[in-house]
Simulated assay, not measured.
Amino acid sequence: MSKTLYDLLEVSSTASAETIAAAHQRLAEKYHPHAPHNQGTADDGDALNRYKAINDAFQVLSRPESRQRYDQQLASKANAAATAAMLAPPPSRRLGWVAVLLIGAALVGGWQYQSRQEAEKARALAEVERQAKERRALELAAELEKTRLLQEAAEARQQAQLQAQAERDAQHSYEVANARADAALHSREVAAANAARENRRQQQQVLALEQERQREAQQRLERDKATLRQMEYDNRRGPSYRSY
């Protein structure tokens, strides 16, 4: 009986996916053509063939769909073998049946090869499509990241412009308020100076008036004194010299 894919991986037909993966890893390390224990040995080529067969078996049994199809093929072969055993022809007719079986095996092998090629092609197409989707997703993510960065840069520039404008407005308001305060202070100083000048002018006017009244009073006093002296002089000279 020819070896099945399970036999190549040294597992049973009911082995779990984890068991199959572990067996593949163990055998791949054992029969890897670049492994030191397989270099320069007599069975170097056999190790390479075994390594390829192990990988092919794992490619089929690691995917649930292909493993199910392979199990169905094994079941069909087993049923066919059982049926052939039950209907085994006499020895004289066995050669004909052997030829028929060989032809059937060749047809089944061709169908298996074609199915494997189609499965590999479908897997390759699926891988290409997956890579294309991943590439489109990466490009979309990069585009979104670029858009986000540009938006953040624009918002930062706008915020900086608003802040600069606010600082300019605050500086202008400070300068205007300072100028108004200076103008108000100057106005108060001018008003105070004017008030001081007016006060001095009024004081000078009052002083001048007071001095004028004092001069007039002094003049009246001098006239009164002169009149009194004349009257005293006239009184001393007698009544005949009086002017009245």
Rank of each mutant, 00 (worst) to 15 (best):
M1I: 06
T4G: 04
T4C: 09
T4H: 05
L5H: 01
D7P: 04
D7T: 04
D7N: 07
E10L: 05
A15W: 02
I20H: 01
A21M: 07
A22I: 04
A23M: 02
Q25M: 10
R26V: 02
L27E: 00
H32Q: 03
P33Q: 00
P33S: 05
P33H: 09
H34W: 02
P36K: 01
N38R: 09
N38Y: 02
A42I: 08
A42V: 07
D43A: 11
A47S: 14
L48M: 13
L48T: 03
Y51A: 12
Y51E: 00
A57H: 02
V60K: 01
L61Q: 03
S62N: 09
R63Y: 00
P64G: 04
E65R: 11
S66L: 05
S66W: 01
R67Q: 10
Q68T: 15
Y70C: 02
D71Y: 03
D71H: 05
Q73T: 05
N79D: 13
A80H: 13
T83Q: 15
A84G: 11
A84I: 03
A85R: 14
L87Q: 09
P90W: 11
P91C: 01
S92H: 09
R94Y: 00
L95D: 11
G96L: 15
V98E: 07
G104M: 06
G104S: 12
G104N: 11
A105K: 10
L107W: 07
V108S: 11
V108M: 01
V108P: 02
G109I: 01
Y113G: 11
Y113M: 08
Y113Q: 08
Q114V: 02
Q117L: 12
Q117D: 04
A122E: 13
A124D: 15
E129D: 15
E129C: 08
Q131D: 14
Q131K: 15
K133H: 10
E134W: 03
E139H: 00
E139Q: 14
L140C: 04
A141L: 11
K146N: 11
K146S: 12
R148M: 14
L149P: 01
A153N: 06
A154R: 09
A156V: 02
R157L: 03
Q159C: 00
A160Q: 14
A164E: 11
A166W: 12
E167G: 00
A170H: 09
A170D: 10
A170C: 07
A170Q: 13
A170S: 05
E175D: 10
E175L: 10
N178W: 05
A179G: 12
A179L: 14
R180V: 12
A181M: 15
A184F: 06
L185D: 14
R188K: 13
V190L: 14
V190D: 02
A191M: 05
A192P: 02
E198G: 05
N199G: 13
R200S: 07
Q203F: 00
Q203G: 09
Q204M: 08
Q205K: 06
V206N: 11
Q211A: 15
E212F: 05
E212D: 09
R215D: 09
A217R: 15
Q218H: 08
R220F: 04
R220A: 09
L221H: 13
K225F: 03
L228A: 13
Q230P: 00
Q230G: 02
R237N: 04
P239D: 10
S240Q: 14
S243W: 08
